[in-house]
Amino acid sequence: MKTAAVYVGAAIAEIAGCFAFWGWLRLGKPVWWLLPGLLSLVGFAYLLTFVETDAAGRAYATYGGIYIVASLFWLWAIESMRPDRWDVAGASLCLIGAAVILWGPRG
């Protein structure tokens, strides 16, 4: 359960940090948006160090699936655009892949 919470927290932090840059460059938001964006990205990187796995690359690969799902939630909740069936199907495949990477039997 701790790993899931870390991944969700990291995804929120990364998406919020990246959105701050998006807002500044693409939406005309003020430059001060960059400061909380940078802090959020630092928090994202810090949180991923708490994933319970023996290899950073495996933690990052698994995180990719979580990030995709969180991005689609952001699309819906923050940008008011409902994910379509292809978004949901693709995210489901990514979550399955993430689960195989994280919990697959290792010999």
Rank of each mutant, 00 (worst) to 15 (best):
K2G: 12
A4C: 13
A4H: 09
Y7A: 07
I12N: 05
E14W: 00
I15M: 09
C18Q: 05
F19A: 14
F19D: 15
A20T: 05
A20S: 11
F21K: 01
W22G: 11
W22C: 13
W24L: 10
L25Q: 13
L27Q: 15
G28W: 00
K29P: 01
K29S: 11
K29G: 03
V31N: 01
L39R: 00
L41T: 14
A45W: 00
Y46G: 00
L48V: 06
F50L: 09
V51R: 04
E52Y: 00
T53R: 05
D54S: 12
G57V: 10
G57L: 09
Y60A: 03
Y63W: 15
G64A: 14
G65V: 02
G65K: 08
Y67Q: 09
Y67V: 04
V69Q: 00
V69W: 06
S71K: 01
L72V: 03
L72C: 09
W74K: 07
L75I: 00
W76R: 10
E79R: 14
E79V: 15
E79S: 10
M81L: 14
R82P: 06
P83S: 07
D87Q: 08
S92N: 05
S92R: 01
I96L: 12
I96V: 15
G97F: 03
L102P: 06
P105L: 15
